[in-house]
Simulated scan of single mutants.
Amino acid sequence: MSIYSHLKQLTAVSCVAAALGFSALASADTWRYAHEEYEGDVQDVYAHKFKEYIEDNSEHSLQIYRFGELGESDDIMEQTQAGILQFVNQSPGFTGSLIPEAQIFFIPYLMPTNMETVIEFFRQSKAVNEDFPKLYEEQGLELLKMYPEGEMVMTADEPVTEPADLKGKKIRVMTNPLLSSTYEAFGATPTPLPWGEVYGALQTNMLQGQENPIFWIESGGLYEVSPNLIFTHHGWFTTASMANKDFFDGLSKDDQAMIRDAADYAFNETVKHIRGLAEKSLEKIQASSDDVTVTRLTDEQIAKFKARAPQVEETFYEMTGESGKALLNQFKKDLEAVTN
């Protein structure tokens, strides 16, 4: 990063601090938490359950900021690392540029498709609950909880049943190198783009598709401009709540334990929320538009996509080295433990 870019970043962070009316060094009983989604979406549900527990079990209060109120995903992460925000919720899709190993969740067909198995994996996984916190700590972050939001669903300008159908299509991906590698393997042209620009780019055909959990496709109205839904069963959208490490370490042991309990409570309540959410969201989409098509790939069709997954795994190794290899080995052991 150039000196100019560094100064520009510091200026932006300072402006946000001024706008919120406090300094990065301030310590207050009102804590601040930012996430990446809209009112009522999964991250918002988690944040409000987290807030509920904290306010019911301490003298502290929590102020929640939703998508766009303090900027995009990269902005709220910078603000958390700078100590302006005490808590942030960010998916590995964006954290992957900061913590390369977090991109593990974007290796296609690594995660199972059964929701209960996925939930049990997040509860029990050594990779998630013991190995990942160490990686986040190196970036000044205290990882509180990783949790699933929903199965990833692709949308496109026409139905897709095989990789050949994606040839020449620009598919929006998060700013995540491994996700780009996945869509290259699938035959598409991956196009990283901030969330705020996605709807317009689909509407004007600058993009021909994207991927997200079905509730987000409904909430963001993406089906209006990208009406063909394709269930490829290639992955789950995962996210994580975390705290500024210096802030967390400066708390009393009682407050630290209370925050961890709040994260556990929010996880359990969010799990209740996502059960059946995909089905309800799809019903709303289909009731809202006659243009929507739903393609559920057969096992034979999935096999054509799945055959391309090993090259993405190799890319993950190239990006992360020995640490990534060890993490993926543990990840697979953890998955085996909950699927057998």
Rank of each mutant, 00 (worst) to 15 (best):
Y4T: 14
H6F: 09
L7W: 07
K8L: 11
L10F: 04
V13D: 07
C15G: 05
V16F: 09
A18E: 11
A18K: 15
L20E: 06
L20D: 05
S23K: 13
A24I: 10
L25I: 04
A26G: 08
A26R: 12
A28I: 00
D29E: 15
D41M: 15
V42C: 10
V42D: 07
Q43K: 13
Y46M: 14
A47P: 07
H48T: 14
Y53E: 10
S58H: 10
E59W: 04
E59R: 13
S61K: 15
L62R: 04
I64L: 13
L70H: 11
E72V: 14
I76R: 15
M77S: 08
E78S: 14
Q79M: 15
Q81I: 13
I84Y: 05
L85H: 08
N89R: 05
T95R: 02
T95M: 11
G96T: 03
P100I: 03
E101V: 11
A102T: 11
A102L: 03
I107N: 04
I107V: 08
I107T: 01
Y109H: 05
L110E: 10
E120F: 00
F122V: 01
F122T: 02
F122R: 01
A127L: 01
L135A: 14
L135Q: 12
Y136P: 02
K145Y: 02
Y147Q: 11
G150Q: 07
G150K: 07
E151T: 12
M152V: 09
M152R: 12
T155S: 14
A156T: 13
A156H: 07
D157A: 12
E158D: 11
P159H: 10
E162R: 12
P163M: 06
K167D: 11
K169C: 02
K169T: 01
R172L: 03
N176M: 13
L179Y: 02
S180W: 02
F186I: 02
F186K: 01
G187I: 07
A188L: 02
V198C: 09
G200W: 01
G200H: 06
A201M: 05
Q203K: 13
T204K: 08
L207N: 01
P213Y: 01
P213N: 09
N228Q: 12
F231I: 07
F231K: 11
T232H: 03
G235S: 07
G235Y: 08
W236V: 06
T238S: 12
T238A: 10
A240H: 03
F247Y: 14
D255C: 01
A257E: 14
A257W: 02
R260E: 15
R260P: 02
A262I: 07
A263N: 10
Y265P: 07
A266V: 08
A266E: 10
A266P: 08
H273C: 04
I274V: 14
R275Q: 14
R275W: 01
R275V: 13
G276M: 08
K280N: 10
S281N: 06
K284E: 02
K284W: 00
S288T: 00
S289D: 06
V294A: 07
V294G: 06
R296F: 01
L297C: 08
A303I: 04
A303C: 04
A303R: 07
K304W: 00
F305C: 08
Q311G: 00
E314A: 15
E318Y: 02
E318T: 14
K325W: 04
A326S: 14
N329P: 00
K333C: 01
L335S: 09
E336Y: 04
N340S: 11
